[in-house]
Design a protein around this nucleic acid. Structure first.
Lengths: 152, 152
DNA sequence: TTGATTTTGTTCAAGGCTGAACAATATAGT
DNA sequence: ACTATATTGTTCAGCCTTGAACAAAATCAA
């Protein structure tokens, strides 16, 4: 059976850690009145100020309709600004307000803490190897998507 | 900034791969008229036939209310059976129908394919190391949850 | 210049997920 | 035997995510 196969089990281990990290993040962000998707937006906009909604959706690997639902809430809370582009009237460019930046820094501390707690189980070399493997896997998957007719 | 820190970036790489795998899985399961959560249920019930809804929720790391929403749909499709326990009248035990088992085997092939495609970027030793790291990290996180007052 | 195509963001409906509240049932303690 | 507490599964409201459809705007091709 698949779950007897090493590769399968190794991936299940990865998936389980991912769930644990998301739960830890959710718990850590709750005092800041932030949900994970909101934080994801804030962190990306902090880091790439001025990006468009489509660019943000690409980075977060979500649909742009999702952002059309989430962004107005962050805007209403005074954390994000959406400004029409000077050249392309379809486009809105995103940036954080001063309050948004402050909140993002606090939330980043939460994320760093969760990640540090997690990685405490690994040596520096192991952690680095993990990152190497995952980056390589990510590139491989983007370069070699499974075709739709090859599954079943 | 956090994204300049190796550990942070290494985790981001893991998170990104997780998203890519979920998207590949979703695409691969679509022809079977299955969503990821449904497949997750089927695979777990296939493997641990007779488990309770609470046990399934624990394994899947989701709330039992979620399963109360999802299971009736799988039952309605004739894939899952929910049988009252012989001793504890609160409990329902889950098993797959013959059709449910067949569909699960087909879906497992999809998952194996996605995982094989993914792991093709790694040597066998690297893949094994990845699993070791993640299992260790998982145990560490379960043993050392962040306290609620330590984040902010 | 014009028409076709693509891109961007919004709206919509559907569905998955959470956590609280609840009822029924089991277990624990006195 | 009785009361208190815990457990199991369901319902509910709220919210995140998807994909389709749409309008406005930009780009492309002839």
């Amino acid at each position: 059976m698949p779950w007897d196969m090493p590769r399968f089990r190794n991936w299940i281990a990865v998936a389980k850690v991912h769930v644990l990290v998301e739960k830890a993040m959710a718990a850590g962000l709750a005092p800041l009145q932030l949900k994970l998707p909101h934080y994801d937006i804030l962190a990306n906009v902090y880091r790439f100020s001025g990006l468009t909604q489509q660019e943000l959706a690409d980075r977060m690997l979500v649909g742009r309709s999702n952002l059309s639902m989430l962004l107005p809430e962050l805007e209403r809370r005074g954390l994000v600004k959406r400004v029409p582009d000077s050249e392309d009237r379809r486009v809105r460019r995103l940036s954080l307000t001063a309050e948004g930046r402050m909140l993002t820094l606090r939330a980043l501390k939460v994320q760093v803490q969760v990640i540090e707690n997690m990685m405490a189980a690994l040596s520096a070399a192991e952690c680095e190897a993990l990152g190497d493997y995952m980056r390589r896997v990510g590139h491989h998957m983007l370069a070699n998507p499974l075709s739709a007719d090859s599954a079943v």
